[in-house]
Structures are given as C-alpha cells and as structure tokens.
Amino acid sequence: MTAITDDPEFRALCAYSARIGGDPAVIQGAGGNTSLKRDGTLWVKASGTWLSEAERRMIMVPVRLDPLRAALAAGDPRAETAADFVVAEDNPSGLRPSIEATLHAALAHRVVVHVHCVETIAWAARADAEAALAPRLAGLNWAFIPYIRPGPPLTRAIAARLAPGTDVLILGNHGLVAGGADTAAAAARIAEVASRLRRAPRPAPPPDLDHLAAAAAASDYVAAADPLTHAIATDARALAVARLGSFYPDHVIFLGPGIVEIAPGGRAAEIVRALPRPPVMLVVPGAGVLLRRDASAGAAALARCLADVTTRLDPEEPLAPLAAAAEHELMHWEAEQYRKAQPAPRA
C-alpha cells in the first residue's frame, strides 16, 4: 500500500479524480471511474465510491491485470465483477472493483479516465451521434461505441472498434473515456472533448415553490434542494425531452426509468398510492421537481444531471432514449444494485 500511495503518478491521478468528482458537469455522485496501471496491477476506482473522495480516503482497488485480461478474452464470467482478481493484501477495506474494470484493463494506456460529462451525453444521446460528432472531433484519435450494457459487453464492443492510437472513446448514451501516458495527458483529452462539444444550457424559469409545497403536502416528498434541478419541469423543451425516456444508465439506476409526473392540481400522495413503489423523483410541469425525503445524495446528483442534459437538448433533435429492454437489464443487474447501495461521502 505504501508503494502506490507514494507514487507521484498515483497521487496526481487521485488529485485529478477528486477535482472532477466535485464538478457535476463531469461526474455525478458515484459515477465515473479512473485507473492507473503499474507493475502488472490495475488500480481502479472501487464500485460505489465517489471520485470526490479520492484524496480523503483510499478508493482505488488493486486488480491483477493479466489474469483479468485473460478472463475477459476467454469469456470467463469472473470478468464481470473482477472480484476474483483483486490483490486482497493491498485491499484491506475489501472494496470491490468498478463495474468498468474490464474497460480500463482492455485499454493499453497507463492512465484511463471515464466520465459522465454532460456535454458529451448531450451528443451521445442522439440517434445520429457518430455523424454529428465527426466534424466536432476532427483531428482527434477517437471512436464511437453504440450503447451496450457497461461491463464486459461494453469492453468487447470497444475492443472490436479500437484502431491503433485510439485514445478517446465516445460511449453512446453513456459518456466519455480518454487514455494517456499519464494523468495530465488523459485529463487534457477529457477537457479538449468537453470544450469541443460544449452546448450552452437554456436558462430556465425559477421553480414555483408554493406550487411544489402544495403538491408535496402530506407526502414523503420535498422540493429538490439544488435550484438548477427544477429546470426539468420549468423549461418546456427540457420537459419534452425528459418525457421521451431515459438517455443514460445512471438515470435508470438512481431515478428509475423515465420520469413520473404530477398533473396540474395533483398531489404526490395520490400519485404514490397508484404506483407499485414510490418513485425517487416526481416532476411537476411548470413548477419544479420533488424528491423523496429519503432520496440518496446520488439520486439528487442524477436529478441535477437530468436537468443539465435536457436543457442542452431540444425535442426536435433526433434523440435516442434507451430501449425498455436496456432499462430492464440495468434495473436488474446485481453490479449496479451493489453500487447504488454504497454510502455517499460524509459531509
């Protein structure tokens, strides 16, 4: 443990991880992951941990790189969690590797960074994403990977499309990956792509807090604390986009598929009684967003993310929400249920 924590490159990666982990335009909650390859070991973010904690506690898990790569190539089901390849003596907290460990292992770069950049998602959610991205990413060594479930399926899809020198990946309906010889190189590529894909979010009307209070009366719901989250409901075009469905995996995992609305004059308590389980988020068109009182910090972060993405999109664009089968797969995937159940950082 002492050797890796004294490694200047490891410290640089942790510092960068903490910085982007605190930027909701790049990372939301426990999303995203980073890694460093050193002496045959892949040090990758632990499942369910927050990158924002990378300098406060050990969130990186050591995984034996060659055995994991061999398992992936052989179709060994142990590659799914990578847990059997963890170097236990250097993982005293018993952390579990990121569900994207195979992605990090498959790329040759010493440092790999995977983020859920809202600028990227706003393009990756389009049906014509690859063609739309081509002129904007001209000159970069990049590849587009159509949506497929994270984990080994995504890793195999990436391997099938990799060309020599590819160091940027745009994951359809998912996010952005960049690799480099060191943290600075990978970080520069992340910043370059985000800059090229930047779209200004539409300014949205403020929430109607009185309306929200009335809708939440006698229920377990409260107005979302982050004022920007309410744009989902107060910006008409953002609401029209949100009504189309879920556009990326973490929306499904933390908020459930799509959105649940309260009709004008409706009450949260009435909506909940009519559903098999109380949704994490309720959208009150024209007024704002309600979150369940017990909503996790991760869920709140993903509600804000939905506002950040939908205010960058227009319902007239050729958008491609996730299929119902993909949503079902995510909601019933043990690895994602494990990640969602991990505690958020303490304030």
Rank of each mutant, 00 (worst) to 15 (best):
D7G: 13
I158Q: 06
R38W: 01
V252K: 00
T229N: 05
Y16I: 02
G180A: 11
A194K: 12
A191R: 15
P321E: 02
L68E: 01
E334I: 10
A132H: 07
E316S: 14
Y147K: 10
P315H: 09
I145S: 08
A204Y: 02
V309D: 04
R202Q: 11
V61Q: 03
G298N: 13
R110Y: 02
R196A: 05
R237Q: 14
A129F: 09
V115T: 15
D208A: 12
V118H: 08
A129H: 11
R156V: 11
V272S: 09
A181W: 04
R189M: 11
A301T: 03
G256F: 05
A218E: 15
A231Q: 05
T41G: 03
A101Q: 00
P205S: 05
A301R: 01
T310S: 13
I271P: 00
A240E: 11
T81Q: 01
T166L: 11
V111T: 08
K37M: 02
T183S: 03
A242P: 06
R96K: 15
S219T: 10
D167P: 06
A224N: 13
L176Q: 07
V272Q: 12
R267Q: 15
E261K: 08
L302S: 03
D39F: 05
E261C: 07
T155A: 14
A320W: 03
H211S: 14
A274M: 05
D208W: 11
V177Q: 04
S47W: 01
G31Q: 02
A46V: 04
N141Q: 12
V113R: 03
I59F: 05
A324L: 04
D84M: 06
L306P: 01
H104G: 14
A82K: 05
I232E: 02
I253K: 11
P345H: 09
I190G: 02
T183G: 05
G286W: 00
R237S: 14
R56N: 13
I20C: 11
L291C: 06
V284G: 04
F85N: 01
A82L: 07
R96H: 12
A231D: 08
L171Y: 02
C305P: 01
P343C: 07
L282G: 08
P321I: 00
V87P: 08
L255C: 10
A344W: 06
A214I: 09
I262P: 09
A143S: 14
H251R: 08
Q28D: 01
L239Q: 09
A185D: 14
L65A: 02
L302W: 10
A347G: 13
L154A: 03
Y338V: 13
L36Y: 12
D90H: 14
G48H: 11
R312H: 10
L228P: 01
L228K: 13
P24R: 11
I59Y: 04
I121S: 07
I20M: 12
A295C: 07
P264R: 12
A163Y: 01
A324S: 06
P279M: 06
V112F: 07
S35W: 10
W50H: 15
G256N: 07
H104V: 13
L319F: 00
A101W: 00
R293P: 00
R78K: 10
A46R: 01
P201S: 13
R136L: 15
A108G: 09
